[in-house]
Simulated assay, not measured.
Amino acid sequence: MDADPGRPAVTWREMLTYFPHRVLGNHVHALPDHGIVYVKNPKAGCSTVLLWLDRLHTGEHDFSPGNVHTDNRLPKVPDVGRRRIARMISGDAYRFSFVRDPLRRFQSAYLDKIVSSKRWRTQIQTALGQEPDPERAVSLDEFVTGIERQDPIGEMDPHWRPQHVNLMMPLVSYDHIGRIETFDADLEIIRKAADLPPVPIEVRNVAKKSTDSILADRPDLEERVRAIYAQDFEIFGY
């Protein structure tokens, strides 16, 4: 997506409205020396992109931490400054992110954050009016109902809230929004457009590909999920 030169400058305060209960600096990564800014969209290649950015920033191409989200060496907000980041995301830098097929992203969020992990279950249980208990499983039906009852900005977790909300749209415009389905080609477009040097890519947190869908036998649930992410389908062309 092309930037709109006629748009007014984005402020830090305006960006905060999209992350009222989270640290904004954990979602926006600016590299002033390279003239780029990346906005995270969880469940859409974040770990892979963050490691790529770390290697780009440090020049250490063999760096491979266990958790790149906590152990990266990318510049922090105090290092860059809120005003400078705001100017960069307003158009003084090349702005990019990645998105994913909404149904596949929903499935990944459920299997990874709800089925395989206990940490996020209480968010859905609270939305359902249940007593929070991370030891208690959350069914697929409950997950869909819980999301339906959550406010996208104030209550939904970034791992399953609509992608256009994570990307702070329409407040923020982008020079390129790539797709996970064409990740290598899109990252090369970004690299060339931003005039960045080649950096080795290490794909992170990618489960074994499967053509099976957890919604395959539940057209009723799929219809509801499509409604939740209707704007993502429209905006990103899925």
Rank of each mutant, 00 (worst) to 15 (best):
M1Y: 10
D4I: 11
P5G: 15
P5D: 14
P8S: 13
A9S: 14
V10F: 14
T11Q: 12
T11F: 12
W12T: 04
R13E: 15
F19Y: 15
P20R: 01
V23P: 05
G25E: 03
H27Q: 01
A30F: 08
L31C: 03
H34C: 05
I36V: 14
I36S: 02
V37T: 11
V37S: 02
Y38A: 04
V39C: 08
S47N: 01
V49I: 13
L51D: 03
W52I: 08
R55D: 02
H61P: 01
D62E: 14
D62Q: 11
F63P: 03
S64T: 11
T70W: 15
D71K: 13
R73W: 11
L74F: 01
L74W: 06
K76D: 04
P78G: 07
P78C: 10
D79S: 02
V80F: 04
G81W: 11
G81M: 07
R82Y: 04
R83D: 15
R84M: 10
I89Y: 10
G91H: 13
A93W: 12
F98G: 03
V99H: 01
D101K: 03
L103P: 00
L103R: 11
L103Y: 10
R104Q: 14
A109K: 05
Y110T: 02
K113F: 00
I114E: 01
I114L: 12
V115Q: 05
R119N: 15
W120R: 07
T122C: 08
Q123H: 12
L128Q: 08
G129A: 09
G129M: 08
P132N: 04
P132Y: 01
S139W: 07
L140H: 04
D141A: 06
D141T: 06
D141R: 07
E142M: 03
F143H: 02
F143W: 02
V144D: 05
G146H: 06
D151Y: 06
P152H: 06
I153N: 05
E155H: 10
E155D: 08
E155L: 10
M156C: 13
D157Q: 02
D157R: 03
Q163H: 02
V165W: 07
M168L: 02
M169D: 01
P170D: 04
S173M: 12
I177P: 01
G178M: 01
I180T: 11
T182R: 11
T182G: 07
F183Q: 07
F183D: 05
F183H: 10
A185D: 13
A185V: 11
A185W: 09
E188K: 09
I189Q: 10
K192Y: 09
K192D: 13
A194V: 12
D195N: 12
P197S: 14
P198F: 06
P198A: 13
P198C: 08
V199Q: 06
V199K: 07
E202V: 12
R204A: 10
R204P: 09
N205M: 11
V206F: 10
V206K: 13
A207P: 07
A207H: 14
K209E: 07
K209R: 13
S210D: 05
A216L: 05
P219T: 04
P219L: 04
P219F: 00
L221F: 00
L221V: 08
R224S: 09
V225T: 09
I228M: 10
Q231F: 09
Q231D: 14
E234Q: 12
F236V: 03
